[in-house]
Design a protein around this nucleic acid. Sequence first.
DNA 1: AGCAGAAAATTGACAGTGACAACTTTACTC
DNA 2: GAGTAAAGTTGTCACTGTCAATTTTCTGCT
Lengths: 196, 196
Amino acid sequence: MTRKYHHGDLRRALVTAGLEILREQGLAALSLRACAARAGVSHAAPRNHFDGLSGLIAALRAEGFRRHTTAMQQGIDQEPHNRRHIGALRGYVGFAMEHPDLYRLMFAHPMPAVSAELERAAGASFEVLMGISEGLDWPQSGDVPCNVDTWMMMWSFAHGIADLTIGGQFAKCEAALGFMPDVEQVFPGFGYADTQ
Amino acid sequence: MTRKYHHGDLRRALVTAGLEILREQGLAALSLRACAARAGVSHAAPRNHFDGLSGLIAALRAEGFRRHTTAMQQGIDQEPHNRRHIGALRGYVGFAMEHPDLYRLMFAHPMPAVSAELERAAGASFEVLMGISEGLDWPQSGDVPCNVDTWMMMWSFAHGIADLTIGGQFAKCEAALGFMPDVEQVFPGFGYADTQ
DNA sequence: AGCAGAAAATTGACAGTGACAACTTTACTC
DNA sequence: GAGTAAAGTTGTCACTGTCAATTTTCTGCT
């Protein structure tokens, strides 16, 4: 149903332009007019495909969550089954490092979102985190209760590392440690109960 | 040395105006002109005190980090000494919940910053985290190595929880869990070695 | 085939923003 | 009290998102 009107598929072209701008010039350079110019159309053309800037941003965030999900799944595939959480988290943080401005944009605006497309894409990403948390044990020393779901801890952990790294906050840490730790070093002690 | 010129202390007035705008109208409403108008001066007056918008933002972030540091220290004071990390983290997350837009602004721009005032304020906040991490043991099950400093984990944890909560991402979690967990429930297993 | 109508894109305008230059007002210094 | 520098104002510019009016292009129907 992708009819070829004047442009062909301006919606997709605008999203692509937005992703390129995010990658090449950063979040501050993202604007409706810049995307329109890069797609080769006039400044008001996007209005036929998006509900203003917020609509374009929602589409960009949705695309980001889809790629984010893919990165986690690829990470899972690269590890043995009993280390799938390491792979997923490596994919999670790796995506954020490779696309820092897109990752920032994904989490910059409040959820739940008005866009159904975005809601679906973010939900799929959430499902992956839920999946790897299934059966994953948190290390408990002694009788410390662990009454909060594992995925909430893992997500907070992963997002914290990703966001603080993007923000350059770990420059102090890197200077203190002498190196930038890998995901596996920051998530010690997790393990699946059925494999031990 | 706070001489009384035309306004008195416009610099402080602009920072106060910015904090009020952040609290009342959110990050999107923060602008140089809005702060100037709220302070009762013309739109170009801030130029004599700040290096443009980025300069005002740096001052706001610095003030944020100072209050953030205070919040953590107050949290520490409200707990017994062997639970000081719980108090600090409760102060950390509590500050973020009370001032979501300011917290977002604090971490929205890359560090290290150009402003010496901001660098100092952020450093002081970092010092508190370093302090509570001293002697704090991470629960290790079996022979899992723990070769990354505790404060890096704690900071990632705290920031992840704060930022995801601000972004409304835990709405899903709250619906799944039926409640919003307290800091203490999300940081199980930590304990000071010298008190056990 | 041809026409009507809808979809897509353009042009032009408006209010708001940050930044800058030129100017005026105020306060401190000597 | 005069000179000087700081503080504040006014005006302007380029840029942004948004909207209205218009033109161009495609689709669907007869």
